[in-house]
Design a protein around this nucleic acid. Structure first.
Lengths: 219, 219
DNA sequence: ACCTGAACACCGTTCAAGT
DNA sequence: ACCTGAACACCGTTCAAGT
């Protein structure tokens, strides 16, 4: 009788995003999501083709949240702003980066975001070839995340590093506390911006030098 | 009667690596591996604690394959050589990068590799703090791979890029054929070395300028 | 048009039992 | 000490059936 509570694609995607925010991507299953919506698992398949398509749908919602570019800026601050805006969207949904990694093809919203960033480089005068390599060098950073190898985890006790003295020194070297090459506090704002600026400065230098691809490539 | 064909940890790891090389990490299951070894699934659990520990064991074998550092070189070529050697090991086992991403903590062999690279930076005169940030900026690259968002896949037809003209231009801009921002030929040797050199050059410049961390950090 | 229920072909892992 | 067999608690997805 309560027809207004019927499922639709939007309700499924929103519930899935909320559930992933709560329990993480690994725990998100079609069965668990169905349970959350008080529905039998197979009811979901009228609104998403399968689990992969569900995740694509979730990602498109997240990526569309990324703030639009600030108009009229120089290419370097403009790209910087756009990438940091993407990072904010990723921080709001900690599972999103993993989901992007898992998928085999970009969603339309991801293509649109990349198209926008490439457009900033091109409008700033970088050649198509340089922009190509620059986009590769940025990698996942263009979507606002770095694929951190070992995420912070306070629950697990830190590994014994006495056999790896250099790692130990570096792990305690950072200015901010709780920082460790294998522990907490990494991939934070500072590390992200540090690497981003090394890359953007490098791109600027290559562009200023009118970089062209080397004539021969082996392999 | 054929006691010599009994299982042991080494035989399990080798079979798992071979199987992953063949069918990929996603298809590798305890049951499939047991079948390959002509054994019942539970027989494996005498030699590896569980599937995660199996993958750690596989990774340690691969990472130990990485060529040792060339002694006596300058830090920049030495780090470069070490990272490109790691890349060779990753190329021999295409599933290894994904496996490293999946694991939540570094294996001993991975820690040893990182320790060795950090040691080269420190011996070259980079400060502990700069080395810390530099290691973060390298990310997975220190292990010889970049986490390519969208791997080549010749089986799937390329997406329609007419809505994303900048992406289309960039996709056809590279000097090598079969190249596409979403398609084949990327994360190849050239793209890897391009980004690596932008980063290493940037690190060198910061070190030459006696880089020190900024006094204040917000957040 | 949308939801249901049962079933299929898988998982990783436990437990108690065999040799 | 090492391997087995059955079972448990899950998966994603199919199919035919309900309303």
């Amino acid at each position: 009788m309560v027809k207004t509570l019927r499922l639709n694609r939007d309700r499924v995607l929103r519930a899935a995003i909320g559930l992933a925010d709560e329990i993480g991507l690994e725990q998100l299953s079609m069965r668990r999501l169905a349970q959350e919506l008080d529905v039998v698992p197979m009811a979901l398949y009228k609104h998403v083709a399968n689990k992969d398509e569900l995740i694509d749908g979730m990602l498109d919602v997240i990526v569309t949240e990324i703030d639009p570019p600030a108009p009229g800026a120089e290419w370097k601050p403009a790209v910087r702003q756009r990438i940091l805006a993407a990072r904010q969207a990723m921080l709001r949904h900690r599972w999103a980066a993993r989901a992007i990694e898992m998928r085999q093809a970009p969603t339309p919203a991801i293509l649109a975001h990349m198209n926008s960033v490439i457009g900033i480089f091109r409008a700033g005068g970088l050649s198509a070839t340089l922009t190509h390599h620059v986009m590769h060098a940025l990698g996942s950073r263009v979507l606002g995340f770095t694929q951190e190898l070992y995420a912070p985890d306070e629950t697990r006790r830190p590994p014994d590093l006495t056999l790896f003295p250099h790692v130990l020194e570096i792990a305690t070297a950072a200015a901010h506390e709780n920082d460790s090459i294998v522990g907490a506090g990494c991939d934070d704002q500072f590390e992200f911006e540090f690497a981003l600026d090394v890359l953007l400065d490098g791109f600027e230098r290559l562009n200023d030098q009118n970089w062209t691809p080397p004539p021969f490539r082996y392999g």
